[in-house]
Design a protein around this nucleic acid. Sequence first.
DNA 1: TCCAATCTCTATTTTGTTTATAGAAAATGT
DNA 2: ACATTTTCTATAAACAAAATAGAGATTGGA
Lengths: 138, 138
Amino acid sequence: MLSMKTQYAFKALMYLAQNDNGEPVLIAEIAEKKNIPLKFLENILLELKKSGILNSKKGKGGGYFFNQPPSDVRLAKVIRLIEGPIALLPCVSLNFYQKCKNCDERNCGLSDVLKEVRDATLSILESKTVADIANVKS
Amino acid sequence: MLSMKTQYAFKALMYLAQNDNGEPVLIAEIAEKKNIPLKFLENILLELKKSGILNSKKGKGGGYFFNQPPSDVRLAKVIRLIEGPIALLPCVSLNFYQKCKNCDERNCGLSDVLKEVRDATLSILESKTVADIANVKS
DNA sequence: TCCAATCTCTATTTTGTTTATAGAAAATGT
DNA sequence: ACATTTTCTATAAACAAAATAGAGATTGGA
């Protein structure tokens, strides 16, 4: 299951995509409209900025806005950034690979199946973008 | 990612499937061969028994064994039992459904996508069984 | 009938992660 | 200079995962 943090990230991104008119949006506005704890949201937006998805402006008239079109932000990227691995085991993760303890990968039926799951999942999450889930045109 | 508990469950089931010769297998043997903390494994096997997947016998010559053919035990069942929901959000879970806070499901692009992910995942996890991952014939 | 072997049960502890909060610092526009 | 707003570092609180402990119940066999 996705953590609250990731769910908040998606809510914030959807809100920003739906209010993407060139004007920065206040953290406080997103927090209030989407019912997200303000200080928690600050952290999340900062991570999204550091990864290049969002950008921001300080001071009066400041706030957050997209650094790239929402249609370029794939859901897989957001999940990996905020949540971590998409695969169900470290030994089948593409971006967070780690060797399994006590599991011979060359000969592990479970990892074979979970690779299939990973690929099926990624084919969806890599093709859908924030624009898709926010119902805004590309 | 699957918890250690679920990974242990799969390891134990694979071991049992590969040593399925009518003789009960000791918890202690599985724990040692698969490097699983003994007392933790006890809990796990008990859950697998209560759900009907395994059965057991006490006393000398006792141990655990399958209550149904490994080829009947779908991976989805094991994950739901030990881990919980397979879906990425409560509001798209078939077996653990819960309404999302602050999310209008009729009109939430994210839940639409995560339903697709769920279906793709389930079509694999409902078709593969413990026999498949243990490489034993049905 | 007694005993050792083995699973069963309930409770607790330990450890780690997630979620949330606090407050000062830096940048910006007027 | 000042109010506004993001940025940063640190910490607290709550929760969940992982592991452990020890007594209880059942079984088979001597």
